[in-house]
Computed example of a mutant assay.
Amino acid sequence: MEIPKIDRTEDLLLNFADEEKSLFYDGHEGYFEQQKLKNKKPGTASMALAPELNYEEYEKYSRILEMSAEHQIEKLSNYYRLQFLQWTFELQQGFNLVFYGVGSKRLLVLEFLQQHFLPAVPGAKCLVVNGYNPDFRPKTLLSMIQETVLGVKNPIAPHIHETLSNIKQNFAQNRDLRCVLLVNNIDGEALRTDRMQQILSEIAAIEQVHFLCTMDNLNMPIFWNSSMHYNFNFIWHNITTYQSYKIENGFKDPLGLGKSNKFVGTQGVKYVLSSLTANAKNLYRLLILQQLEKIDLSVSHDDLDKRGATKGSTRYSLLLKEFYQQCLSEFITSSEISFRTVLGEFVEHKMCTLTKNSAGAEILYVPFTVDEMEKLLEEQFV
């Protein structure tokens, strides 16, 4: 058979491969070959550069997002509903389930429990733990199990490990007890401790407990030791739903996403500056300018890409004495008393930090990133 000749001038794929200098190997060799030839630098944009939103705009955009691709998302959920029978079988065989993927998984897992698994386990008590609630405590979970599942009305033991031991003993003595425990966001802020994960793993290891959980951060299992992995006995299921995290984010300010913990947009700073005099506003403007200048002098040429994310700290701090002298020379303040009074307002509202260095001299700095400070300058002082 005659081997066909390749016309490289007409073959778009080969031309594209020559331009990109990619070999397009199959398998893992192709992946590493293509990654090695990429010269693209990661983006330097941050959430601080995003436009400011009020809560009315946030709600409007959230509703629009929920309506987009609504039909496709529902078809995806129907596909996962076909797996309910498989999940039921795995739980009945003694395994525990963990669900991961993009999007809220809370409603889908609740639907599985209410419509499929709980009817298959008559008499079982179902408990739901919301790990996204930052106020949740281990004693709350243990007392729920004692009162709801075991019917124990005695007060909780002084030590958590004693209470956990009593729970295990009660389950061992009554083999007819059944409990279904669902943990939404096992990687949540309230559950992200070694003690809490150890407690959950020991509860999951009880034979009469059917344990299910959802997870959004796949790095969470790195913090589990071999004993926790053995106790959890997980089967993993990817249920990417693309549903909104509106309920999970209800305990935090969604407009503060990606910003410093001490800085949520410019709304708080606007409120503080609006109640101050013109000299006080100029003082804060000068402080930000001096802070940016200090950072620019310290950041090397190779780290310019990281400049926007550089945050004010003691490393880039200003000497309070020198800053006071500069304010005097620019007629922003007339005395040290008024200077410290205005500065105290900024410190109280966490707009700047006042401390001492290793030599005992007073220093101050703005604890925001460069992007946040530049945005504040543009919106408030330009």
Rank of each mutant, 00 (worst) to 15 (best):
I332P: 01
F323H: 02
E189S: 04
S300L: 09
M1G: 12
V98C: 10
F32N: 03
W236G: 02
L343Q: 05
F112R: 01
L377Y: 07
L76I: 04
L200D: 03
V342I: 13
L108F: 10
Q198P: 00
I3W: 01
D135R: 14
N282G: 09
Y58H: 14
L191D: 02
R195A: 14
Q326G: 00
V370C: 13
R192V: 03
K38R: 05
V129Y: 01
F263C: 14
Y61T: 12
N217H: 03
T148V: 08
R315L: 12
L14T: 07
M220W: 10
G360F: 10
I73M: 15
L85N: 11
E189H: 01
A157F: 09
E10H: 11
D302H: 04
G268A: 10
T355C: 15
I160P: 03
R8C: 13
F251L: 03
A359P: 00
F99Y: 09
L218Q: 12
Q115D: 15
Y230H: 03
S300R: 09
L85D: 13
K21M: 09
I363Q: 01
V98P: 00
N261R: 12
N217W: 08
Q291F: 11
Y58L: 15
S329P: 00
G360L: 13
L65G: 13
G131C: 05
S104H: 00
T333Y: 07
K40I: 15
I156F: 08
Q208A: 12
L255S: 02
T277G: 11
L218P: 00
E378W: 03
V370T: 09
E379I: 14
